[in-house]
Structures are given as structure tokens and as C-alpha cells.
Amino acid sequence: MKLSREEILDRLAASCKNTLMETLEIKYIDFGEDFLTASMPVTPRVHQPDGVLHGGAMVALAESVGSAASFMFLDNKEMFVRGIEISANHIKSKVDGMVYAKATFIHKGRTTQIWNIDVVDEEDNLISKCKLTTIALPRK
């Protein structure tokens, strides 16, 4: 049975209940054959003390979208996914509005996956450039 686009996005949304993704208001909004995109509002909830978007919130967004993409594109009935390394270069500040993270494959291996994740604002300005490595492990 092939799921519709809306059903897949609804399942991703349901997986976020009572998690950090729900706390940060991260929503999965688009996907294709080799990418997944999520959004996060920039509000005081994700600010650092001086009123700008916290780098850790951007990293949480990046790891959330990359890990969810690995889960989507691998056999998730037989495997589970964990992030094993993430790096981020924060390029521009953001005070309000929205940010969008798009995860695309750099490497799609059976065991490890490497993701490029660009975090951009509403005008497609690069806010942060991230790289995530995930590992797929067999369920027992």
C-alpha cells in the first residue's frame, strides 16, 4: 500500500508528539525522492539570552530533519536510526520569522548515511550549514 504525501507528513507529525520536535514546533513540510524539509518558528522560545536564534536550536532542527530523512529512506521496519555526529556553521543571525531545514544525501550507505542540511530563512538566505552522520542499526 502506497501512502499519499499527506499521510506520510501526518505520520511524521504524529511521531513528534511529546518530543523535542514538538517543544521546538518543528514541522515536516515537504519531501521528495532524496530530501526532507522541516520548518521551525523563530520565537523567544528558541532564542539565546540576547534575543537571537540559538545555535543549539538550529542544530536540533538539523538533526531532527536528517534523522527523520534517514528513517524515511531506509527500511525502518528492520532498522532504527541514530545520529552519530553533527557539525554546524552558523552564518547569519535570525530574530523572528521562520527557518527551514532541507536534508539531502551526501552518502547513502547501508549502515551510515551522511546528510547536508541547509537552514535558510523565508528569503532563502543561508542561516546555518550543517552536516549530519547517521547510523542504521538492526532492530533486535
Results as ranks from 00 to 15, higher is better:
57 A>S: 11
135 I>A: 02
84 I>R: 06
96 D>C: 07
100 Y>S: 05
28 Y>G: 05
138 P>T: 03
10 D>M: 13
116 N>V: 00
33 E>W: 11
5 R>K: 15
111 T>I: 07
32 G>S: 02
129 K>P: 03
3 L>A: 12
46 V>D: 02
116 N>C: 05
105 F>T: 01
112 T>S: 06
125 N>H: 09
20 L>F: 14
96 D>G: 05
116 N>D: 14
6 E>C: 09
112 T>E: 03
58 M>F: 07
6 E>W: 05
7 E>T: 09
65 V>N: 04
73 F>Y: 15
62 A>P: 04
62 A>I: 01
12 L>W: 10
66 G>A: 11
10 D>L: 13
139 R>Y: 01
128 S>I: 00
25 E>T: 10
39 S>E: 15
70 S>A: 12
62 A>L: 02
65 V>Q: 04
79 M>Q: 14
70 S>T: 14
40 M>D: 04
93 S>C: 09
35 F>T: 06
80 F>K: 07
72 M>L: 15
44 P>D: 08
107 H>L: 10
31 F>R: 05
112 T>D: 00
40 M>F: 04
40 M>K: 10
19 T>F: 11
93 S>Q: 14
67 S>D: 01
8 I>E: 11
74 L>S: 15
105 F>N: 01
64 S>Y: 12
90 H>I: 05
92 K>E: 11
1 M>Q: 12
55 G>T: 03
3 L>R: 11
126 L>M: 04
20 L>Y: 13
56 G>M: 10
58 M>L: 14
82 R>G: 12
78 E>A: 15
35 F>V: 02
90 H>V: 04
33 E>R: 13
102 K>V: 03
35 F>G: 03
